[in-house]
Amino acid sequence: MRYAMAIDTKKCVGCSDCVIACQTENNVPIGYCRDWIVEVTDGTYPQLEMEIRSERCNHCDNSPCVRCCPTGASHIVEGGIVLVTPNECIGCGACIASCPYDARYPHPDGHVDKCTFCVHRVEKGQQPACVGVCPTNCLYFGDLDDPKSEVSEILKTRKYKTLIPQAGTEPQLYFLI
């Protein structure tokens, strides 16, 4: 099993609903976030192009954050989901420095926090909170090893890219372009 997410940049409107739904679902303290929006505009008026991306942890197959964690708090569970165990985390910040995507933040309670792919929901067969709320239906989540999953299906038909592939982390967020 290999969980992954596809994000359709052609549909995302940058509304931040995925951000706030994650914050409320996971009780992320106000002032912090596990997912965020990046908007890139290219060109000069009126020859313009824009890409909007909803970003979060890439749950990398080759994850430097897990490798560099001195306590084993950062670890990988079934389906390739990268997690942090709060009470094993000493808040040293090594993982934050190692992540090329800036996906981790220091939680005010003293541990590091990040996107969990809403593992507590996924275990129950639900979708991650961001996927479930997105008003444009532009987020797709599922198992890449299952060729019939929504995410596998959409990656078969659409062009996509990953972010900073040259970092070699084998990220599992696929941006449909």
Binding site: S16, C33, R34, V38, E39, G93, I96, R104, Y105, P106
Partner: peptide, 15 residues
């Protein structure tokens, strides 16, 4: 130990 998550939820990249 501040990182970008603490400041940006929406970033815009222009020219």
């Amino acid at each position: 130990m501040a990182n970008r998550r603490q400041f940006l939820k929406l970033s815009t990249i222009g020219i």
